[in-house]
């Protein structure tokens, strides 16, 4: 199972003075069970890209294939695709509308045509999965804190049992603990359920800590598509387009430039610590 993008282009307001090419010749293959980070500054095309993955936006040219099927085929079940590829927008708590949390999470499954009972089971599972305590289930979603609301909104998409979930900056505006809680929950879900996760983020530190592969978008094009180490090796090129590597990667590079025998392939505090300790151990031996 996979999703393949073949030479996808997208042009906003084609034929007018405001014409903008938001996606340029994008080729991608996302395999089942991957944990992918998408980075790029505002306007780099990352939001446009993820909306193509579940068919909310339609490519101006090029093809998208989900499990080998052309999603632009006129017989293709587009609504079915939307429940297979779940998309959690930025500030998803703004879409909550039901009188209770439980009912709100049921909205997706009911739209899929499930019975009330089945939808309820799904909602229960999803809310459990995002770690919301049970006594809150029948409260109004509007009484929750920001972090809790966000989790309800994520549960609303999870309840549709998607094979792949895309999250557009799920931690925007949350405090550090809230941020870690959400990201840990997502990582756990990926590990336990084997669901494919695409995480759009501005935080290089977060991306480096969780994902296995990073796609860097710049001016509508895929600039890099590699492992975190592989991408952040190009920290100079990233800087040139207004992005940066995690702070620890810079530190290691600077240490190495000063002639210290340190490995520079680290993007998290954990791995950087290991590299530095390894270097000190090797110095000690000498």
């Amino acid at each position: 199972m996979s999703i393949i993008l073949n030479k996808v282009n997208y042009v906003y307001s084609a034929g007018t003075a405001y014409e903008i090419q938001a996606l340029k010749n994008v080729n991608l293959k996302i395999e089942d069970g991957e944990f992918i980070g998408v980075i790029g500054h505002t306007g780099s095309g990352k939001s446009t890209l993820i909306q193509h993955l579940n068919g909310l936006m339609r490519a101006t040219s090029g093809g998208i294939y989900y499990n080998g099927e052309d999603i632009y085929d006129k017989d293709y079940d587009m609504r079915g695709l939307r429940s297979k590829v779940g998309l959690v927008f930025q500030y998803p708590e703004h879409q909550l509308f039901e009188t209770t949390i439980f009912d709100d999470v049921c909205f997706g499954p009911l739209n899929q045509g499930l019975s009330k009972k089945e939808a309820g089971v799904r909602a229960f599972e999803a809310l459990n999965c995002v770690g919301l305590s049970e006594e809150l289930y029948y409260q109004s979603p509007f009484d929750l804190s920001g972090g809790q609301k966000r989790r309800v909104a994520i549960a609303g998409v999870l309840a549709m049992k998607p094979e792949m979930i895309i999250l557009d900056e799920p931690t925007a505006g949350l405090d550090p603990k809230g941020r870690d809680e959400i990201l840990d929950q997502i990582a756990k879900m990926h590990k336990e359920r084997g669901i494919t996760v695409v995480l759009v983020s501005h935080s290089m530190e977060d991306v480096a800590k969780y994902v296995g592969r990073i796609i860097v978008m710049n001016q509508g094009e895929v600039m890099f598509d590699d492992t975190p180490n592989g991408v952040f090796r190009h920290y100079r090129e990233l800087e040139a387009v207004g992005l940066a590597a995690p702070a620890v990667t810079y530190l290691l590079h600077e240490l190495s430039e000063r002639g210290l025998p340190v490995g520079t392939e680290a993007t998290t505090v954990e791995t950087a610590k290991k590299e530095i300790l390894k270097m000190l151990a090797s110095l000690e031996k000498r």
Binding site: R79, L87, V88, H94, Q95, F107, G108, N111
Partner: peptide
Amino acid sequence: EETDKIMKAQMARGAD
């Protein structure tokens, strides 16, 4: 703009 965003978010949850 906000209407457009909410509409898309609900469509992603299967709204018609």
